[in-house]
Protein backbone atom coordinates (compact mmCIF):
# COMPACT_ATOMS: atom_id res chain seq x y z
CA UNK A 1 0.00 0.00 0.00
CA UNK A 2 1.60 3.17 -1.11
CA UNK A 3 1.18 6.20 1.04
CA UNK A 4 -0.01 9.55 -0.19
CA UNK A 5 3.46 11.01 0.16
CA UNK A 6 4.90 8.27 -2.05
CA UNK A 7 2.22 8.82 -4.64
CA UNK A 8 2.94 12.49 -4.63
CA UNK A 9 6.63 11.75 -5.07
CA UNK A 10 5.96 9.42 -7.99
CA UNK A 11 3.75 11.99 -9.59
CA UNK A 12 6.35 14.68 -9.10
CA UNK A 13 8.87 12.37 -10.75
CA UNK A 14 6.70 11.97 -13.83
CA UNK A 15 5.95 15.65 -13.90
CA UNK A 16 9.63 16.54 -13.74
CA UNK A 17 10.46 13.89 -16.35
CA UNK A 18 7.89 15.28 -18.78
CA UNK A 19 9.02 18.82 -18.09
CA UNK A 20 12.66 17.98 -18.69
CA UNK A 21 11.87 16.07 -21.86
CA UNK A 22 9.76 18.82 -23.38
CA UNK A 23 12.22 21.46 -22.23
CA UNK A 24 15.09 19.59 -23.86
CA UNK A 25 13.10 19.33 -27.09
CA UNK A 26 12.25 23.00 -27.06
CA UNK A 27 15.80 24.09 -26.23
CA UNK A 28 17.06 21.94 -29.10
CA UNK A 29 14.60 23.51 -31.52
CA UNK A 30 15.46 27.01 -30.35
CA UNK A 31 19.23 26.57 -30.53
CA UNK A 32 18.98 25.08 -33.98
CA UNK A 33 16.76 27.95 -35.13
CA UNK A 34 19.01 30.58 -33.55
CA UNK A 35 21.98 29.17 -35.41
CA UNK A 36 20.33 28.93 -38.79
CA UNK A 37 17.16 30.95 -39.01
CA UNK A 38 17.89 34.47 -37.92
CA UNK A 39 19.25 37.21 -40.12
CA UNK A 40 21.88 39.76 -39.19
CA UNK A 41 21.64 43.43 -39.77
CA UNK A 42 24.34 45.48 -41.50
CA UNK A 43 25.05 49.02 -42.62
CA UNK A 44 26.71 49.66 -45.97
CA UNK A 45 30.07 50.36 -44.24
CA UNK A 46 30.09 46.91 -42.60
CA UNK A 47 31.64 43.83 -44.11
CA UNK A 48 28.64 41.90 -45.39
CA UNK A 49 28.80 38.12 -45.76
CA UNK A 50 27.77 36.91 -49.18
CA UNK A 51 26.40 33.47 -48.50
CA UNK A 52 23.36 34.23 -46.38
CA UNK A 53 20.26 36.36 -46.26
CA UNK A 54 20.89 39.55 -44.34
CA UNK A 55 19.22 42.87 -43.71
CA UNK A 56 20.81 46.02 -44.99
CA UNK A 57 19.76 49.34 -43.51
CA UNK A 58 20.41 52.99 -44.25
CA UNK A 59 19.10 56.01 -46.08
CA UNK A 60 18.11 55.93 -49.73
CA UNK A 61 20.58 58.23 -51.48
CA UNK A 62 19.07 61.35 -53.01
CA UNK A 63 18.63 61.10 -56.75
CA UNK A 64 19.73 57.48 -56.95
CA UNK A 65 16.41 55.79 -57.70
CA UNK A 66 16.14 54.48 -61.23
CA UNK A 67 13.34 52.38 -62.66
CA UNK A 68 14.54 50.05 -65.34
CA UNK A 69 12.06 48.76 -67.87
CA UNK A 70 13.22 46.19 -70.37
CA UNK A 71 10.59 44.25 -72.22
CA UNK A 72 11.39 41.10 -70.26
CA UNK A 73 12.45 42.32 -66.84
CA UNK A 74 11.54 45.35 -64.86
CA UNK A 75 13.17 46.36 -61.63
CA UNK A 76 14.11 49.34 -59.53
CA UNK A 77 17.60 50.23 -58.48
CA UNK A 78 18.83 52.65 -55.84
CA UNK A 79 21.67 53.25 -53.42
CA UNK A 80 21.58 52.82 -49.68
CA UNK A 81 24.05 54.90 -47.70
CA UNK A 82 24.93 55.35 -44.05
CA UNK A 83 26.49 58.12 -42.01
CA UNK A 84 29.94 57.34 -43.42
CA UNK A 85 28.50 57.95 -46.91
CA UNK A 86 29.42 54.42 -47.88
CA UNK A 87 26.99 53.26 -50.58
CA UNK A 88 25.65 49.94 -51.77
CA UNK A 89 23.53 49.50 -54.85
CA UNK A 90 20.27 47.67 -54.28
CA UNK A 91 18.22 45.96 -56.94
CA UNK A 92 14.61 45.04 -56.30
CA UNK A 93 11.96 43.43 -58.47
CA UNK A 94 8.94 43.86 -56.24
CA UNK A 95 6.75 46.79 -55.37
CA UNK A 96 8.31 49.55 -53.29
CA UNK A 97 6.47 50.35 -50.05
CA UNK A 98 4.40 53.53 -49.94
CA UNK A 99 6.73 55.10 -47.40
CA UNK A 100 9.70 54.62 -49.73
CA UNK A 101 11.27 57.93 -50.62
CA UNK A 102 14.73 59.20 -51.41
CA UNK A 103 16.38 60.40 -48.21
CA UNK A 104 14.22 58.08 -46.17
CA UNK A 105 15.53 55.31 -43.94
CA UNK A 106 14.70 51.79 -45.12
CA UNK A 107 15.70 48.20 -44.56
CA UNK A 108 16.39 45.84 -47.45
CA UNK A 109 16.32 42.09 -46.88
CA UNK A 110 18.19 39.94 -49.34
CA UNK A 111 21.62 38.77 -50.45
CA UNK A 112 24.79 40.48 -51.54
CA UNK A 113 25.75 39.21 -55.01
CA UNK A 114 29.29 38.66 -56.25
CA UNK A 115 29.21 41.83 -58.35
CA UNK A 116 28.61 43.90 -55.21
CA UNK A 117 24.95 44.54 -55.94
CA UNK A 118 22.52 43.76 -53.14
CA UNK A 119 19.55 41.86 -54.47
CA UNK A 120 16.60 42.54 -52.19
CA UNK A 121 13.67 40.24 -51.84
CA UNK A 122 11.88 42.59 -49.48
CA UNK A 123 12.03 46.30 -48.71
CA UNK A 124 10.74 47.54 -45.38
CA UNK A 125 9.86 51.07 -44.38
CA UNK A 126 8.62 51.82 -40.92
CA UNK A 127 5.19 53.20 -40.25
CA UNK A 128 4.42 54.67 -36.88
CA UNK A 129 1.96 57.14 -35.46
CA UNK A 130 4.23 60.14 -36.07
CA UNK A 131 5.11 60.01 -39.70
CA UNK A 132 5.87 63.68 -40.28
CA UNK A 133 8.33 64.59 -42.98
CA UNK A 134 11.61 65.36 -41.26
CA UNK A 135 11.63 69.07 -42.21
CA UNK A 136 8.28 69.70 -40.56
CA UNK A 137 9.32 67.78 -37.50
CA UNK A 138 12.47 69.85 -37.25
CA UNK A 139 10.47 73.06 -37.44
CA UNK A 140 8.31 72.00 -34.53
CA UNK A 141 11.41 70.96 -32.66
CA UNK A 142 13.06 74.32 -33.30
CA UNK A 143 10.13 76.00 -31.59
CA UNK A 144 10.70 73.67 -28.65
CA UNK A 145 7.18 72.37 -28.93
CA UNK A 146 7.63 68.74 -29.52
CA UNK A 147 10.20 66.08 -28.99
CA UNK A 148 10.73 64.51 -32.36
CA UNK A 149 10.48 60.81 -32.39
CA UNK A 150 12.76 58.88 -34.63
CA UNK A 151 11.07 57.10 -37.40
CA UNK A 152 12.50 54.64 -39.83
CA UNK A 153 15.73 54.33 -37.91
CA UNK A 154 16.73 50.72 -37.55
Amino acid sequence: MTTLAQKRKLQRFWLVAILIMSLAGVVGLVLNALAKKISYFYYPSDVIPKDRTVRLGGLVSEGSLIKIAHEQSRYVQFNIEDENHQKIMVRYKGLLPDLFREGQGIIAEGKLLDDGVFEARQILAKHDENYLPLEIAQKIKAKGLWKVSQSAQP
Binding site: L29, I38, Y40, F41
Partner: peptide
Protein backbone atom coordinates in the same frame (compact mmCIF):
# COMPACT_ATOMS: atom_id res chain seq x y z
CA UNK B 1 13.61 39.91 -27.03
CA UNK B 2 16.54 38.13 -28.68
CA UNK B 3 17.41 41.11 -30.92
CA UNK B 4 17.50 43.23 -27.77
CA UNK B 5 19.72 40.73 -25.92
CA UNK B 6 21.96 40.28 -28.93
CA UNK B 7 22.50 44.02 -29.29
CA UNK B 8 23.44 44.36 -25.61
CA UNK B 9 25.45 41.16 -25.10
CA UNK B 10 26.82 40.23 -28.52
CA UNK B 11 26.77 43.81 -29.85
CA UNK B 12 25.21 42.53 -33.04
CA UNK B 13 22.00 43.60 -34.68
CA UNK B 14 19.91 40.61 -35.61
CA UNK B 15 16.42 40.05 -36.87
CA UNK B 16 14.31 37.16 -35.75
CA UNK B 17 11.74 36.60 -38.43
CA UNK B 18 9.23 34.15 -39.80
CA UNK B 19 11.82 31.43 -40.42
CA UNK B 20 12.80 31.27 -36.76
CA UNK B 21 9.21 30.95 -35.60
CA UNK B 22 8.32 28.40 -38.25
CA UNK B 23 11.10 26.20 -36.91
CA UNK B 24 10.26 26.65 -33.21
CA UNK B 25 6.76 27.86 -32.30
CA UNK B 26 5.06 25.89 -35.03
CA UNK B 27 6.33 22.40 -34.01
CA UNK B 28 5.64 23.20 -30.35
Amino acid sequence: TYPLLASVILEKTVTVGAEFYQATILPI
